[in-house]
Write a protein that binds this DNA or RNA. Structure first.
Length: 859
RNA sequence: GCGGGUGUGGCGGAAUUGGCAGACGCGCCGGACUCAAAAUCCGGUUCCGCAAGGAGUGUCGGUUCGAUCCCGACCACCCGCACCA
């Protein structure tokens, strides 16, 4: 008997699709379009199960939409710039370019056997000069429009390697390679003016209806709009030029609880003091030893240094507050200076406790101050922690100065701002947490920033006819630092303004720039301009974008900004300023970890294929099994898709990653699950084989039942795909296979049902679906067949079974006509013998009938 | 530290989003076929209990006729924190 053999059938159908050009995206104004995009991969050299899951999801959508009659665009490319290529060059020699293009070739070869419905003719890599040259052109356009500028910013500097470090390369304050203590350094760098769009990027989130709520929330919090008061303290004993200290606060209602002022170590006043006071210099230098990431700053122990300077409270000139330099005050946010109210801010509370500063409550929980009805009692027990209720909660102000005595924090803030403005103490200010996007990288393997530095003219944009400014190939990584910086000829340029010799900019762009517009480039990947109007008009926006939740903020926010910038510079139509209509964030692929210990007790990890039944096959040693974790090379809990495809075929891998777990959740790869997927596909194949050969006569009752089940399955599977619940589609297909194999229906009805099965399977396991389709004598390719439609009349049942609960516990059930009215149902329920038995004569207090659903009897 | 999320049988998960908790799959148990095994097919399988019955969706509390679903507190794990991609 012939068997299902994916090694033969999968390449066969891939060839058939290619020959028919099924996946070539065609701009067809007569048809609606559908653009499905998965976040493009970094070419690490190996695909992993996460890729398989991500691209299979996109493929299911792409194939489904195509069979629904859409003109589908489903492209693939490579996010090819970035540090790993340079690291490889440093560690193993060779050139980042060779490493990258080699990896791309390897990964493409690993990806193709998956049978994805990708239009490979649109493939590109962001390190192709044809791509980054267009990016440089857009950079110049953005420069013209004032969307890019230069300013000083801090970087992590490794003094041993003489290089800038990424945050992830700073481990416990030391450089990952050199182990040297990392310093913060200031460099002049390029920035995009994303903060100009903060308000708009925030407001537009409301219109992204098909984005996950959590992503919109995360972005909203990241943008961080706040309403507050900015005002100036007058200072005492401050150096000349610092007679005022501007602070920003989101809680001006707590002004009467102020007990100190604090400035950032990077505040101009701190900078000034640093130059004259060795103690300040030492403290500030110490603060700068912490990395530049917000996480590092927040986790560091809260410390401060009293500057000796005092400020006067704006409401009471006799009231003086000390000014500290504090390591937790961020220069980038607000004015880089704050006042501390320890009673109502946990961080201020810890700071005040540490430095013995007063902690005076401004408000108390509503009702907590009753009794004497006056001010709070003096000598009350000291607070154990700050009282920080939500701003929406009503509290009682004991040191209020504006608004009601009992009011919400929100109302109090507004009243305080109004009061302060009326009394000439500062002004209400709307602030955003979002900072401008620093795009400069002091690295080789990135898109060169197309400007030159001229002694006479300053920073001058390159001439457009000189684009692309290509990366030089003759570089080496045997010395520390950026090879561009020390390149003898590449750095030499001619000033486009005056013709004098100038120095080429050696900063390259953040790789987030590359990934902020690739979706638009896919619509015209080989054009001589960044985009082509007819193409972006037709294909944009991306109808469905799919990727990991780890990109919820940066990549997606930058892309939203970049699309706006591309609109301003004429590269995208207004409709595309929100480039992704719908977003789906998928979970990870996880696996158990197998561990033993060496003689010294250190963990030793083992690959899944080395282990069977909790035992290492080669040695018979038992392993410790650590539950499911994200696949990682260092823990060796990885499964190589290439091996899976070799052993079972692509359809099994695809079927597995679509099964079980909801797509947004993690899925655990298990060997038994892969076996099960393979077994099921074989079973479907045998079933099709048997049905194709069957000559069973019609059987009216069985045929009708099977037809109803078929329509039910069409509806369920379609709903699963539409709702991104592929795991439920899979479950329904399992159930349908069970139904179909047990059905006593005639050959014609079973053949019909099997044909539908092939179609419903086709988005997930396209090769097997084609094979079955052809076994049944289906016309053409199932990939080009029209998606089946469920007949609504087939989906409703005439009779329904209602569970009957007594006091919320299920005790009986009755089967009634679907539309029987509630009064009739009540009568039947009360007459039901199980109900009568349970009631045991007790009176019914309440009877709830939810039509078509449930009955609840309350006694 | 801050922001966001997740938690259901031995395991992955389902539940029309306030209406029968455990669909479907794995695993396990039993059976058929086989000299035997594999493969395949059929049946069973939340827990406690002989049963009647009781308990049960991370923990504790609340709202409701009714809570996996809504609210509050807590615990555990995961993601992000602006130079990883």
């Amino acid at each position: 008997m012939p068997r299902y053999d994916p090694a033969v059938t999968e390449p066969k159908w891939q060839r058939a699709w290619e020959e028919a050009g099924v996946f070539t995206a065609r701009r067809d104004p007569a048809r609606p379009k559908y653009y499905v995009l998965e976040m493009f991969p970094y070419p690490s050299g190996r695909i992993h199960m996460g890729h398989v899951r991500n691209y299979t999801m996109g493929d299911v959508i792409a194939r489904y939409k195509a069979s629904c009659g859409f003109s589908v665009l489903h492209p693939m490319g490579w996010d090819a710039f970035g540090m790993p290529a340079e690291n490889a060059a440093i560690e193993r020699g060779g050139h980042p370019k060779d490493w990258t293009y080699g990896n791309i070739a390897d990964m493409r070869a690993q990806m193709k056997p998956l049978g994805l419905s990708i239009d490979w003719s649109r493939e590109f890599a962001t390190c192709d000069p044809e791509y980054y040259g267009q990016q440089q052109a857009m950079f110049l356009d953005m420069l013209d429009k004032g969307l890019v500028y230069r300013k000083s910013a801090q970087v992590n500097w490794d003094p041993a390697d003489m290089t800038v470090l990424a945050n992830e390369q700073v481990i416990d304050g030391r450089g990952w390679r050199s182990g040297a203590l990392v310093e913060r350094r200031e460099l002049t760098q390029w920035f995009f003016r994303i903060s100009d769009y903060a308000g708009e990027l925030l407001e537009a989130l409301d219109r992204l209806e098909h984005w996950p709520e959590k992503v919109r929330l995360m972005q909203a919090n990241w943008i961080g709009k706040s309403r507050g008061l900015q005002f100036a303290f007058s200072t005492l004993g401050a150096p000349e030029g610092f007679d005022r200290l501007e602070v920003y606060t989101t809680r001006p209602d707590t002004l009467l609880g102020a007990s100190f002022a604090a400035i950032s170590p990077d505040h101009p006043l701190a900078r000034h003091l640093e130059r004259h006071d060795p103690e300040v210099a030492a403290f500030v230098a110490d603060c700068r030893r912490v990395g530049t990431s917000e996480e590092a700053l927040e986790k560091a122990e809260k410390r401060g240094l009293d500057t000796g300077i005092r400020v006067r409270h704006p409401f009471d000139t006799a009231w003086e507050l000390p000014v500290y330099i504090a390591n937790f005050v961020l220069m980038d946010y607000g004015t880089g200076a704050i006042f501390g109210c320890p009673a109502h801010d946990q961080r201020d509370f810890e700071f005040a406790t540490k430095y013995g500063l007063p902690i005076e409550p401004v408000f108390l929980p509503e009702g907590a101050a009753h009794g004497d009805g006056d001010r709070d009692e003096d000598g009350a027990a000291p607070l154990a922690e700050a009282f920080v209720p939500p701003k929406s909660e009503r509290v009682e102000y004991v040191r209020g100065f504006a608004g009601e005595r009992v009011q919400t924090g929100e109302a109090a803030v507004n009243a305080a701002i109004a009061f302060c403005e009326a009394n000439g103490v500062g002004r209400g200010v709307t602030n955003y947490r979002l900072r401008d996007w620093g795009l400069s990288r002091q690295r080789y393997w990135g898109c060169p920033i197309p400007v030159v530095h001229c002694a006479a003219c300053g920073v001058v944009p390159e001439k457009r006819e000189n684009l692309p400014i290509r990366l030089p190939d003759d570089v080496s990584f045997d010395r520390p630092g950026n090879p561009l910086d020390r390149h003898p000829t590449w750095t030499r340029a001619t000033c486009p303004a005056c013709g004098a010799e100038a120095r080429r900019e050696t900063d390259t762009m953040d790789t987030f720039v590359d990934s902020s517009w690739y979706y638009a480039r896919f619509t015209a990947p080989h054009a001589k301009t960044p985009t082509v109007p007819e193409e972006v008009d037709y294909w944009m926006n991306v109808d469905q974008y799919i990727g990991g939740i780890e990109h919820a903020i940066l990549h997606l926010l930058y892309s939203r900004f970049f699309a706006r910038a591309m609109h301003v510079t004429g590269h995208l139509p207004a409709k595309a300023i929100e480039p992704f209509d719908a977003l789906f964030t998928q979970g990870m692929v996880t696996h158990e970890i197998y561990m033993t210990r060496d003689a010294a007790g250190r963990p030793v990890y083992h690959l899944p294929e080395e282990v069977e039944g909790g035992i290492i096959k080669a040695t018979g040693e038992a392993v410790e099994i650590i539950p499911s974790a994200k696949m990682s090379k260092s823990k060796k809990n990885v499964v190589d898709p290439v091996n899976i495809i070799k052993a079972f075929g692509a359809d099994t891998a695809r079927w597995f990653v679509m099964s079980d777990s909801p797509p947004e959740r993690d899925v655990e790869w298990t060997a038994s699950g892969a076996d099960a997927a393979f077994r099921f596909l074989g079973r479907v194949w045998r079933l099709a084989d048997e049905i194709a050969a069957s000559a069973a006569p019609d059987n009216a009752a069985e045929d009708a039942a099977l037809i109803r089940a078929t329509h039910r399955t069409i509806a369920d599977v379609t709903a699963g795909i539409e709702g991104f619940a592929f795991n439920t589609s899979v479950a329904k297909l399992y159930a349908f296979a069970n139904t179909l194999s047990k059905s006593q229906a005639g050959a014609a009805a079973r053949r019909e049902a099997m044909g539908v099965m092939a179609q419903l399977l086709s988005p997930m396991v396209p090769h097997l679906a084609e094979e079955i389709w052809s076994m049944l004598g289906g016309e053409g390719l199932v990939a080009q067949a029209r998606w089946p439609e469920a007949d609504p009349a087939m989906l409703v049942d005439e009779r329904v079974t209602l569970p009957i609960q007594i006091n919320g516990k299920r005790r009986a059930e009755i089967t009634v006509p679907r539309d029987m009215d509630a009064a009739e149902v009540e009568k039947l329920v009360l007459a039901d013998e199980d109900v009568v038995r349970f009631l045991a004569g007790k009176p019914v207090k309440k009877l709830i009938v939810v039509p078509g659903r449930i009955v609840n009897v309350v006694i």
